Amino acid sequence: DVEEQIRRLEEVLKKNQPVTWNGTTYTDPNEIKKVIEELRK
């Protein structure tokens, strides 16, 4: 469920934690926001 994935990513973003997505770890909040934007398409 895309909405659920977006919610999880936004939670991690608020906590300033790194996100691992498709084998890539993102630590930059701007990169995480880009992943969220991609999911919304």
Rank of each mutant, 00 (worst) to 15 (best):
36 I>F: 04
41 K>P: 02
5 Q>T: 14
3 E>Y: 15
24 T>L: 10
8 R>S: 07
32 I>D: 00
2 V>T: 06
7 R>G: 04
23 G>E: 03
19 V>A: 08
36 I>S: 00
9 L>V: 02
26 Y>H: 02
39 L>Q: 01
2 V>R: 07
37 E>I: 08
33 K>C: 06
18 P>M: 08
30 N>W: 12
23 G>K: 01
35 V>F: 08
30 N>F: 12
41 K>M: 13
13 L>T: 02
11 E>H: 07
32 I>G: 01
23 G>W: 02
2 V>D: 03
17 Q>Y: 15
28 D>L: 05
27 T>E: 05
9 L>C: 03
26 Y>G: 01
13 L>H: 03
9 L>E: 01
12 V>A: 15
30 N>L: 12
39 L>W: 04
19 V>L: 14
31 E>Q: 09
10 E>N: 06
24 T>V: 15
41 K>L: 13
41 K>S: 10
37 E>V: 06
36 I>A: 01
8 R>Y: 15
37 E>D: 12
20 T>M: 13
25 T>I: 12
15 K>Y: 14
12 V>N: 14
16 N>W: 10
41 K>F: 09
34 K>Y: 07
20 T>A: 06
11 E>M: 13
16 N>Y: 05
35 V>I: 15
39 L>S: 01
33 K>T: 06
25 T>Q: 05
15 K>H: 13
35 V>Q: 03
26 Y>L: 13
16 N>Q: 09
6 I>E: 01
16 N>M: 09
21 W>V: 12
13 L>R: 03
22 N>Y: 10
1 D>P: 11
39 L>H: 01
9 L>R: 00
30 N>P: 02
19 V>M: 09
27 T>A: 06
24 T>E: 10
40 R>G: 03
2 V>I: 14
35 V>G: 00
39 L>G: 00
27 T>H: 10
4 E>A: 10
22 N>H: 09
17 Q>V: 12
17 Q>S: 09
30 N>Q: 11
2 V>H: 07
3 E>D: 12
35 V>W: 04
23 G>I: 00
29 P>T: 06
38 E>H: 11
14 K>Q: 12
37 E>Y: 07
25 T>N: 04
3 E>V: 10
20 T>I: 15
14 K>R: 14
7 R>A: 11
38 E>S: 13
2 V>K: 05
10 E>P: 00
36 I>W: 03
27 T>W: 10
13 L>E: 02
23 G>R: 00
16 N>S: 08
41 K>R: 12
11 E>P: 01
40 R>F: 04
14 K>M: 13
39 L>K: 00
34 K>N: 07
7 R>Y: 05
30 N>V: 13
21 W>M: 10
19 V>R: 00
17 Q>T: 08
12 V>Y: 15
36 I>P: 00
19 V>I: 14
2 V>L: 12
30 N>G: 10
37 E>G: 04
4 E>Y: 13
38 E>G: 08
23 G>D: 04
22 N>A: 06
39 L>N: 00
13 L>F: 09
18 P>A: 10
41 K>N: 13
1 D>G: 11
25 T>V: 13
16 N>F: 13
2 V>F: 12
15 K>R: 13
9 L>Y: 02
6 I>R: 01
27 T>N: 10
18 P>E: 08
15 K>L: 15
10 E>K: 05
6 I>A: 04
17 Q>P: 04
26 Y>Q: 00
18 P>F: 07
10 E>H: 05
8 R>N: 07
9 L>H: 00
31 E>W: 02
22 N>I: 02
18 P>K: 10
13 L>N: 02
36 I>N: 00
29 P>N: 04
24 T>F: 12
17 Q>W: 15
6 I>Y: 03
9 L>Q: 00
22 N>E: 14
12 V>Q: 15
11 E>I: 07
1 D>F: 12
21 W>S: 02
7 R>M: 08
9 L>D: 00
35 V>N: 01
33 K>M: 14
33 K>Q: 10
38 E>M: 14
2 V>A: 07
40 R>N: 03
17 Q>A: 09
5 Q>N: 09
3 E>T: 10
31 E>I: 07
22 N>K: 08
25 T>K: 04
40 R>I: 06
17 Q>R: 06
18 P>W: 07
7 R>I: 07
21 W>K: 02
41 K>Q: 13
29 P>I: 08
32 I>R: 00
